[in-house]
């Protein structure tokens, strides 16, 4: 028996909506700052909020996360402070990585978000070792490894799945198939439609879920995480979603098919979640407005915190190179 409902209809999506709104507002603050020249550009996760929030909320406190450059959703859903994240993006000393990471590789060990890398596929190469430690050191948590369809075309994806299956490693592989591999559409780069199709060749169970339906993602991720936990073996969950902004801010997206993007914008995960909650009567308009106000207040405070944080001193240039 699972401790939480795995039926999407029984899930209370209100806290999930708030997390998604926080992620969207955080990314939009960065986009605005990038446009104004006050914040470095980033790889935003706009459009993919449900895929991140649904999976992260299926994880327990003991579980570990490896992620990549498009990580704001994972970090914020895990409880990262948007102020310290923004400080990191802006290269300030109060950032989670003392300003040495910038946006692309933010790890927050205290939250179990470890070894974030922007090298596409590196998260896949390191996940087996993290899972091996969990098992050999008797730790209960499983390892969730977030990557995209681009990383799935790297050799490290295939090597990682092979080893995880061979060594019985408790890894929940989460492929956020957002259709874009930097500036290349996945249909130009992948021999198959779905990344989940590749898992079966390694004997790894896999499932593709609508990545823009937060309750569906959470339900599927609970099933997947529970299976990894019980079997101590890998599982691959593919969240079918779409990167609605560019690869990296700024990006005019002139290479994007407008019809495809419009179709996905019509399936916006936040609008879908809010509309369903309103339609079901689980949320009324004034409650929805209150959530929006809370999120706006947090992002405003985060921006103020980050801007007030100083830059690292020059003598920190060579600190933390060696242990």
């Amino acid at each position: 028996m699972t401790p939480h409902p795995a039926n999407p209809h029984e899930i209370d999506a209100r806290p999930l909506l708030e997390q998604m709104l926080l992620i969207r507002a955080y990314e939009e603050a960065i986009v605005a700052g990038s446009d104004a020249g006050t914040i470095p550009g980033t790889c935003t996760s706009v459009g993919q909020e449900a895929a991140a929030v649904g999976v992260v909320n299926a994880l327990g406190a003991d579980d570990l996360i490896l992620t990549n450059h498009r990580s704001a959703g994972h970090l914020l859903a895990r409880g990262a402070d948007p102020g310290r994240l923004l400080a990191e993006v802006m290269g300030r000393r109060d950032g989670y990585c003392k300003g040495r990471s910038g946006s692309l590789h933010i790890s927050v060990k205290e939250l179990g978000v470890v070894l974030t890398s922007t090298i596409v596929g590196a998260e896949l190469s390191m996940a087996p070792g993290v899972a091996l430690s969990q098992g050999m050191l008797g730790r209960p948590g499983i390892v969730a490894c977030f990557f995209g369809d681009g990383a799935a075309c790297e050799g490290s994806f295939h090597e990682s799945l092979n080893l995880a299956a061979l060594w019985n490693l408790p890894i929940l592989y989460v492929c956020e198939n957002n259709h874009w591999q930097a500036f290349v559409h996945r249909r130009e780069a992948m021999s198959r439609e779905h990344v989940s199709e590749w898992a079966s060749s390694y004997g790894i169970p896999a499932h593709t879920v609508d990545g823009n339906d937060v309750a569906a993602v959470l339900a599927a991720a609970r099933v997947a995480a529970e299976q990894v936990r019980a079997s101590r073996r890998p599982y691959l969950l593919e969240t079918w979603t779409y990167r609605t902004r560019g690869h990296f801010e700024p990006d005019d997206q002139s290479y994007v098919d407008p019809a495809e993007r419009a179709a996905w914008l019509a399936r916006d995960p936040i609008a879908r979640c809010r509309d369903r909650l309103l339609a079901d009567g689980a949320l009324n308009p004034s409650q929805a407005a209150a959530i929006g106000d809370r999120v706006a207040t947090r992002i405003h405070a985060a921006r103020a915190f980050a801007e007030a944080s100083s830059y690292p001193a020059a003598d920190e240039l060579t600190r933390d190179v060696y242990a």
Binding site: V114, L115, A122, A127, P128, L132, L137, S156, L163
Partner: peptide, 18 residues
Amino acid sequence: LAEGIIAGTAVGAAASGL
């Protein structure tokens, strides 16, 4: 015989206590 995943696994394991 896959040096990338051997080294990557070592990196992940080393960062996590082994």
